[in-house]
Amino acid sequence: MLSRIAESLFWIGRYVERAEDTARILDVHIHHLLEAQLESEAELCGVLLSVMGVKIADMAAEELTARRVVEILAFDTTNPSSIVASLVAARVNARGVSEAISSEMWEALNVTYNTLFTESGHGSAFTPYAFFRFVRERGAVVSGLIDSTMSRDDAWRFMVLGRSLERVDMLARLLAAATVGPEPDWVVLLRSVSAHEAFLRTYRREPEGHLAAQFLLLDRLFPRSAFYSLRSAEECLAELDPRSARVGTQDEGRRVLGRLRTTLEFLRVSDLMSDLPELLPELQRECGAASVAIASRYFRQTNVIEWTVERAEFDVVQPIGL
């Protein structure tokens, strides 16, 4: 497959997951914010924006409102990680590689985009709640189509690889935001990643912080857990390059992800809560490192090259002696 297409597929996976997860995170927190005391609203908003990667240093305190947070994280097309920007980016990438994905997938992304821009006029016609639900639904549609309409070939692997990495990164952000400030409502948090029911069936009790974190990070069976997603990503890499070295691994991406997965796998469960403040940034960092490693291995030279014209001889030639 063309490197450029592989890269686009990887990023479609990431962007769609990012949009969906951002919607999930906002859904929990907007709820939370509306209930909070007025004076703590600014602080909570600041935390949320920081966790989502928005630089708030030059924002005035009165700008830090729930409404503004939704604008920035959901609708702002100039914020590259907002929901709308992610969906636009996913569609632009899909357009460039539409011959490499199923036409259903392309249509799903295209219809999502059309709904945002053509029909409702920039998504703002939605209430936040309806908008987040719409985004989650579209995410589910795309995910479903990835799994049901694409052959398990390299195209599928790059897409799932992107989706899995993004899922880990966003889960770390979700937890980081939740573990700041007042004790979060763990039921809402679990629901936001569609994990509440699975949690109840596993633990048969109402969630507490450490159990919820344990479930989201370490569970081996729940598909949105960090452990599960890391393992999926690793499997994709293993299948992309099935050659295995006798010692260690040649594949830097696989090495980074494998090590991270083992960290989670052999973590002392009782230490989880105290390790969390280090663990969450590590997850994000290592996912970034894996992404870089994957890019340098599979997506080399996908950029446009600008050419410089070599200087011509007569520019410097010395005069002929006359």
Partner: peptide, 22 residues
Amino acid sequence: DYSDVVPLKGIFHGGPTSSMDV
């Protein structure tokens, strides 16, 4: 004219030419 017979014509990708000597 000259442009039909340029002795060395080339394009490259990377750092600019710092000096040239013919």
